[in-house]
């Protein structure tokens, strides 16, 4: 039967592709602990689901072959069958068990990838701010005092805490071989912990549609040893030009730029929208807040003004 044939083809194709090509697929070819955990999770779920597929496809094929009309005598009349409580409970319980197993795996791995990877909990993280504007990425290294555009260098064996935000549409920061993605948004900072195990070049990108230049929002991630990284930082500090406010505004309005390096960060004059609470001014408590945070208040106002200025510039 044709039907069976095409199913077999699909199944063999599937197993072939899964076994043969997995090592070439980025997501299943991890270069860091978070991506490795996710890759394991994915392969585990694929195997579980393959089991389900095998059961359904086998039953389906057997039933179709056995009970087609051309295979039964002309006077065969199918029996009336209301169902079987026992069987129906069985195929309710088995999926519940499968879902329960997957739930445990999901909850465990979700909690794990939201934290610094195992073994790196006590290490002081390297903080990198990743901000998207138009169709480019800005990477600021506040501790090193340098900033890059559209390329990212990180040391291996070091937990990097990415702090993500956007100067406009929601974008999603994703380095498939290091770990899962997370959104960068305009009114808050989201955090993502990633570690690279081995040196090498990887693809990073924005995966959330953000407008006309979205397809061009790829950047190279280069993992290098700590020594090489320090050397690179020093090099940038020495040779790269400083980032002025003027230059930064110009950068923000430009849609596409190549790689750039600077010997300071934009955070000095355009802080990230980290102070979440400033957006949650409680109406009733306005006066109280003014009293207690009197000193900070001016700063907030200024920051707010600056933020809106930035947004004006990126709007065109």
């Amino acid at each position: 039967m044709k039907k069976k044939g095409s199913l077999l083809v699909i199944l063999t194709l599937l197993t072939f592709l899964l076994s043969g090509c997995t090592s070439e697929l980025l997501v299943l070819n991890p270069k860091g602990p978070a991506a490795a955990l996710l890759s394991e999770t994915i392969i585990f779920s694929v195997l579980m689901m393959a089991g389900v597929l095998v059961v359904v496809f086998t039953l389906f094929t057997i039933i179709l072959v056995k009970y087609r009309a051309s295979n039964s005598s002309p006077d065969y009349e199918p029996p009336h069958d209301e169902g079987s409580l026992k069987l129906e409970i069985t195929w309710t319980l088995i999926p519940i068990i499968i879902v329960s197993i997957l739930s445990v795996v999901t909850v465990k791995s979700t909690i794990a990838v939201e934290k610094p990877p195992a073994g790196y909990e006590n290490q002081k993280p390297l903080i990198i701010y990743a901000a998207s504007s138009n169709y480019k990425w800005h990477f600021s290294y506040p501790e090193q005092g340098i900033e890059t555009v559209n390329y990212l260098n990180i040391p291996t064996g070091q937990n990097v805490e990415f702090r993500l935000y956007s100067y406009g549409p929601i974008t999603s920061f994703w380095i498939p071989q290091l770990g899962g993605q997370k959104y960068a948004m305009s009114d808050m900072v989201t955090k993502l912990n990633l570690v690279a195990d081995t040196p090498g070049s990887m693809m990073g990108k924005n995966s959330n549609f953000s407008g006309k230049g979205f397809a061009k929002m790829e950047f190279e991630v280069l993992a290098m040893t700590q020594g090489q990284f320090d050397e690179w930082v020093n090099d940038v500090k020495k040779t790269a030009p400083p980032l002025t406010e003027e230059k930064y505004d110009q950068l923000l309005t430009t849609e596409f730029v190549g790689r750039e390096s600077f010997s300071n960060t934009h955070l000095e004059f355009r802080p990230a929208p980290e102070d979440h609470s400033s957006h949650f001014k409680k109406p009733g408590q306005k006066d109280e807040e003014q009293d207690s945070n009197h000193e900070n208040h001016g700063e907030h106002g200024e920051q707010h003004k600056q933020e809106s200025e930035v947004e004006d510039h990126s709007n065109h």
Binding site: L38, T41, S45, V52, V105, Q181, F209
Partner: peptide
């Protein structure tokens, strides 16, 4: 079944979009 795979939040960080 691919839907079930997508439902797993951690794995979805790799499938999303």
């Amino acid at each position: 079944v691919t839907g079930v795979m997508l439902a797993m939040a951690s794995a979805d960080y790799q499938y999303h979009n």
